[in-house]
Design a protein around this nucleic acid. Sequence first.
DNA 1: AAAATACATGTCAAATATTACATGTAAAAA
DNA 2: TTTTTACATGTAATATTTGACATGTATTTT
Lengths: 182, 182
Amino acid sequence: MGTLQYAILGMLNRESMTGYDLTREFQTSLFDFWTAKHSQVYPELKSLLEKGYVEYETEISGTALKKKVYTITQQGRDAFQNWEETAYPIKPIPKDEFRLQLFFSDAMEPEMRLKQLEYHLQQHRQRLEQIRKKQEKFEVIPPKEESQFCDYLVMQGAIHREESYCSWLEECINLCQQRKIL
Amino acid sequence: MGTLQYAILGMLNRESMTGYDLTREFQTSLFDFWTAKHSQVYPELKSLLEKGYVEYETEISGTALKKKVYTITQQGRDAFQNWEETAYPIKPIPKDEFRLQLFFSDAMEPEMRLKQLEYHLQQHRQRLEQIRKKQEKFEVIPPKEESQFCDYLVMQGAIHREESYCSWLEECINLCQQRKIL
DNA sequence: AAAATACATGTCAAATATTACATGTAAAAA
DNA sequence: TTTTTACATGTAATATTTGACATGTATTTT
C-alpha cells in the first residue's frame, strides 16, 4: 500500500472528513513534507473503501450538495498503526533540478552561474519566510502529548531544511565571487 | 522535455558515452541530486535520438559485444544550453515519508517515537558519512573554471542537507527527552 | 443581481519512475 | 576451469503523479 493511503488514514484517524477536506490539508498542514491533488485523493479513497479501511456517510449541505464524509474503520486504524510504528529504510535522495543545473555550470558563463545562484537564493528565502510565518503562531513549544507538538517538530524540520539550503547557496555565491576578485 | 533528458545531454556534453556509462554516472557522480535506472535511460536516449539531439556509433568491444557510443549534436548542445541558462521556479517541496510519520506521532507511544527518531538519525548519519568520504578527496577547492569546482559545490550542498537533517533530528530527540525528565 | 470564489466529486491522458523480465559478452576471481 | 562480477542493451508491467477535462452547488463579494 502506497504512502499516500497512509497519509489519508492518518488524517481520518484524527478526524472524519471529505475528500475535499483531505485535499485542502495536503495543500496546507501537510504541505511541507507531502502533497496530493484531488485527482489523486478521490481514487485513493475509493481504494481504501474497497479494502475496508474507511467508510463514508453522505451528508447534504444546503439543499442539494452531496458530501461524502469518510471515517476510518478499526481495520484502517490497525493498518495505520502498523505503518506508523514501522522503521522504514530512508528513501533515495530527492531529485533537485537546480543542483543538476549547478553540477553542469562549468559549461556556463560565471556571471550566468552567479545569476542563477542568486535567483534560487531569493526563491528559497521566500519559502523560508512563508514557513517562519507558520512558526510565529507557536508562542511556546506545545506539550508533547498534543498533535500540536508534532506540528511543531515537522515545522522546525522545514525551517532547518530551508535555512540550510539558503546557507549553502550563500556559500556558493561567496566561493564564486571570491575567486573573481583574486 | 523532461529534466532527465537534460541530465543526459549534460553528461554527453562533457563526454561521449554509452547508456551503460550514463546509468553508472546516475549511480555515482549524480547520485546526490538525481538518479535514474537503465530502464529509464535507454528509452530516453531513443527519444533524444529521434529529436536529433544525440547520435551514436556502434563500437565492438572484444570480438562480439556491441556498444552504442552516444555523442551530443549541435542541436542537442543548443537545447542543453538553453535549459542550463533558464531560471526555473523552484519545485514543490520533496516528499518525506518519515516527516509524515512524525507528523502523526501524537497517536504513538512516546518511547516508540523516540525509537523512530533515533533510527532515522542513525540512517542519515550514515548517509552523511558516505558523502564526507567523497569530500575528503578534495584537498583544496578546485578553480572555478573546472567541472571539479561544480562537483565541489553540489557535494557541499549534499553535506549541508544531511547535516541539517541530522541536527533537526537531534533537536527533536532533545525535545522529546527533555519533557520526559521534567 | 451578477460575478467571482469556495465547496464538492469525479475521470482520463500523459509523464515519470520502479521492478521485473529477458538476453548475451567480457573480464576477473576463486 | 568454473563461477562470479561487470559490461551491455533492451522491453513490459506496474505504480505514482500531474494536468486537463467535466460538472454542479453554496457562499461571498462587487
